[in-house]
Design a binder for these strands. Structure first.
Lengths: 105, 105
DNA sequence: ACTAGGTTCCGCCCAGAGCGGAATCGAGCG
DNA sequence: CGCTCGATTCCGCTCTGGGCGGAACCTAGT
């Protein structure tokens, strides 16, 4: 899908190659939800959050609290650690020996 | 003084074996800072946050924004991905020494 | 054209992020 | 012993962003 990039919060980051934590974790949550072929509503209900808010979290627009992060991860049958593992290894660059390193570790 | 330990946010977690994201990431930040034998003030100044706030983040009492998380990680020469790697693999011992480690820290 | 489902947009309220002053703690010194 | 200092923690406050819900938007099917 040709998605429009979500706007950055607060300050421009024209030079920052590193995405923010909320962008990384949001992308992982959406990836996992779509891999399970589920709707926003499905996961949001299991997690106990609103559908609209989960949409914003997945698009990296909001920093969820740790409680909500756990709840959403749990709704996807993940732990926060597993989520972190995916964040660490996801979307690495073409040079990405880093990704391989994570898998090895 | 016999002060009450700070309450967990919002809901009790009497049965949750999984610590929250802010506890995991806080412990990692403190571990790395201490490995570098630096003070709270040192890292806080480089990150552009207050010393007292960094203390609360390291103790897992506050959910820092993604911007502040990046700044603190950067002050410790880490990326958010590297931090996530450490969160994912830290304290995974089945003996639960992780809890003791937290209390000690 | 209409309908329905899914997702995104947007304004709002209040919970909590982030701060700074003060308290506490431990080590060193005279 | 009391005093001083540095490091960390405690706590109250202000302001902002988390989380919500109504509405708008988008796409596919009929």
């Amino acid at each position: 899908m040709g998605e429009v990039l979500p706007l950055q919060r607060k300050v421009e980051r024209p030079e920052s190659p590193e995405p923010l934590w909320r962008e990384l974790v949001g992308a992982e949550l959406r990836r996992e939800r779509q891999a399970r072929e589920e709707r926003l509503t499905d996961v949001a209900e299991r997690a106990g959050v609103s559908t609209q808010y989960l949409s914003e979290v997945e698009r990296g627009l909001k920093d969820p609290s740790s409680e909500i992060l756990s709840a959403v991860a749990g709704a996807l049958d993940l732990t926060v650690r597993e989520l972190s593992t995916r964040v660490a290894s996801a979307g690495t660059s073409a040079t990405g020996s880093y990704g391989a390193l994570c898998l090895a570790a």
